[in-house]
Design a protein around this nucleic acid. Sequence first.
DNA 1: ATGCAATATTACATTTTGATGACAAATGTT
DNA 2: AACATTTGTCATCAAAATGTAATATTGCAT
Lengths: 237, 237
Amino acid sequence: MTPEPNILIVDDEAAIRDMIGIALDTAGFRSTTASTALDAHVNIIDQRPDLVLLDWMLPGGSGIELARRLKRDELTANIPIIMLTAKTSEDNKVQGLDVGVDDYVTKPFSPRELVARIKAVLRRSTGNLKDKPIRVFDLEMDPASHRVMVEDRAVEMGPTEYRLLNFFMTHPEKVYSRDHIQDQVWGANVYLEERTVDVHIGRLRKALSSASKTGINYSALIQTVRGAGYRFSTRHD
Amino acid sequence: MTPEPNILIVDDEAAIRDMIGIALDTAGFRSTTASTALDAHVNIIDQRPDLVLLDWMLPGGSGIELARRLKRDELTANIPIIMLTAKTSEDNKVQGLDVGVDDYVTKPFSPRELVARIKAVLRRSTGNLKDKPIRVFDLEMDPASHRVMVEDRAVEMGPTEYRLLNFFMTHPEKVYSRDHIQDQVWGANVYLEERTVDVHIGRLRKALSSASKTGINYSALIQTVRGAGYRFSTRHD
DNA sequence: ATGCAATATTACATTTTGATGACAAATGTT
DNA sequence: AACATTTGTCATCAAAATGTAATATTGCAT
């Protein structure tokens, strides 16, 4: 649901932190940084990042320590960790340090590879949460197949209308202001004309109203609340 | 897919690794090695070997640790593991079976015995994968003969299109992002342009659409979901 | 009813996204 | 070695989606 995953970069070298930060930025991630294991730990508990990029060679070997601690603590155990390991063969020192991280990337690495790995790990960890279909009368939304059906026939709509309907169906019987809807459907940091929401509401209504063959107008589920916003409701106005 | 199965040898003693490597080589296997659990984990995630030969007695007891982790993680759970144990000990066997290891070989062992066990385990594990043919209308995919048939006539397509179709037919009615498809069809450690998936989708569609003599267009089963990815579905858009 | 503010609808320029043919590198085959 | 096939990337075109502004309509207080 969060539009941009938040990645914590833990490395003692500022240059590397910056480099990675830029790479993640251009790839559409948000990122924060920490230069020590202690910093990192505080940040993780505070911010609960979606993923941690952890330098294996933190001074004092505390990188591995941190990974182990995170994986041991129930609260942080399922935050994915990608280890950044140096290419040098420290085989002897490495023994027994396999603490259950989710992936490894060896330095030097290309930003592209790093981003790909991050995406793969994130997909693995969040993809498991498979949403169940939501049904209201004969209007059904199935997130798994990414489909909206009315009376078992697919309804055509653009991606934005899909997200909009998804938001409404998962938050029924409540009014939401245009601002709030923008936050939820477009993302928190996107700024639009207020009226744009109206337009997309219109498009969604149109898609729904032309969908039924039995005369039921499903666009009536999306109700205008004058002066307040919109509401998805099965009850009449 | 690969003619020669790829075996990962995990042992801290170089002499043993070499010995096993040679034995496997003459038996027609490919092999890679790792001397630590960490190395091994990296290798497994990267290379996805067909089988892992894992020394029980890795320093720090991390051999069992690793086995347990591999079996716990969904991505690696069905990679067969053969444990190499130093001495026959009931304790070890019980503990290892608990972890879900596929077989044991006790040191010292003859190369012949090792190879025989490996073959047995591989036969068992790949036999399961060669499942029944999958059929959708008159489109049939038979993994055993590695063939795709439409109305009982073979359909020509490249290996990548075959894997792509196989993925779709085994995961119907769900959207998959291009990233996800890359993971599943090309492998987790391969990085391609996003658009490459489009091209192969196109090739697969072309192969399918020119296959039917009865006018049914099977390429319609592969649906584009704008802004989300692709979907294999028997239902209309 | 009237006027006003809020919402709906429409039209359109711009941006985003996907399909496809061409091409060259890699790979396999004869 | 010559040839064919497969593969990944790119450029280009077409289609779809998007956001905004202009215009129309609606609901409501007076």
